[in-house]
Amino acid sequence: MTSIFTHDDEDIANEEYLAGESPADNNDDSAPLVDLRNVTRSVVLADDQQLHILRGVDLQIRVGDHTAIVGRSGCGKSTLLNILGLLDVPSSGQMLFDGTPVERLRSNTRAKLRGSSIGFVFQQFNLLPGRTALENVVTPLLYAGRKEFWRRNTLGMEILDRVGLAARAGTQPHMLSGGEQQRVAIARALVRRPRLILADEPTGALDVETGQAVMDLLDTIATESGAALVTITHDLNVAARARTRYRLDAGVLSSSDGMPVNDVLMGVSA
């Protein structure tokens, strides 16, 4: 398999936050990339009542894992993904990112760690309107180190080529189909070669066939790069692709390994 992820691996720019352990190998006994321990998330509602969105979630994600999380709308999937993506912090419990407890990190440090190690793919693509596909793809490189910044157009074109959209580099999002937009978004999520890819219902806004093509691409490209992929989904086929599957129900996460896919998804599509 050809891979674009063979060049200068030394500039994965995490050393300053993540000194010590090297999570590069994919052994199960290595330290997990993400380790949630009894994580809860609750918010105070307008009437002073507590809403417990996540209740005691334990979850380990290792480099190279492909994980699916399924659950009904409103069960807390996005909240969990936001915590995994360092966009949100647990109300209680612990989260380690590459061995570092994230609640101790300053928000700027979290932002930099997010930029260097995590790539997001959203249901609504979230491309920046008015900017071309290439401009969108290189956006994360604007917040990267000098080397990546100055090579941004080369790096951007490489990854656009990988998702098959090199020819549309100068096209603005509104001129692209939904599937193409999501491929641009995937290119953007991967342009800094993150070790964790978080996809929040990546096929939710696409028709079935386009969704499958996008998931094929996401799976392949994540495998090539050796990144961990966490996908939130309603889609039966998407869930079936993942090696590890979890079910989230009213904030409680349970493993569904070994369960038939239809049981896992029970109620989700109802």
Binding site: G85, L87, S107, N108, A111, K112, R114, G115, S116, G119, F120, N126, L128, T139, P140, L142, Y143, A144, R188, R192
Partner: peptide
């Protein structure tokens, strides 16, 4: 969107 891709608040 920009912050989710690593932009700090100062930036």
């Amino acid at each position: 969107i920009r912050r989710s891709f690593g932009a700090t608040s100062g930036r």
